[in-house]
Amino acid sequence: MGRDYITVVTGLPRSGTSLMMSMLDKGGIAPLKDDVRTADVDNPKGYYEFERVKKLPGDQGWLPEARGRAVKVLGELMKHLPSGFEYRVVFMMRDLDEIVSSQKKMMIRRGEDPDVIPDDELIRLYRTYLKNLKGLVNSSENMRVAYINYNELLSDPDQSFEEIRDLFDGDIDADSMRDAIDLSLYRNRGG
């Protein structure tokens, strides 16, 4: 029996969403992506993005195509996912200091000012932002969610794999997912 739900990987930028997309791919859930945004120094293995997602809520025509596959949806766009579908959500979390540090490097490479918002202020904003986002996901009847911590995923993957396996009722090859983990790409560690 095929998967009749849409697998959604969400979280803040630089929280490990691309890694999770590649892990799910290895585990047997094909990604919905278009390779418009190509691999670069920030994401050497690619972004796993599907540009039409950014057109939500205006463009929802791609959603039937996403059934049975995994699609990356930025946290900001989660509220626009229509109610006519079932979603299994992998919600990526990561130490906020690491996220901010990684984002700043990315902004510099993009020619943006990384210090528009002071780090402390940004972390405060992100905390509230994530809390509200979790509230949205937790209260949505058509969403099942697993919260996966990027730092724990890399340091002790077995617990995270168990949670991912539960989310998909065992219908995923967790052992193969391990192949996607490349510790050499784990930069911007805290501490």
């Binding site: 930028p13 950014k54 057109k55 930025l74 900001e76 990315m106 528009v116 940004l122």
Partner: peptide, 10 residues
Amino acid sequence: DRLRALGYLD
């Protein structure tokens, strides 16, 4: 604005 600057939002 931050998400736009990072290229994740149009």
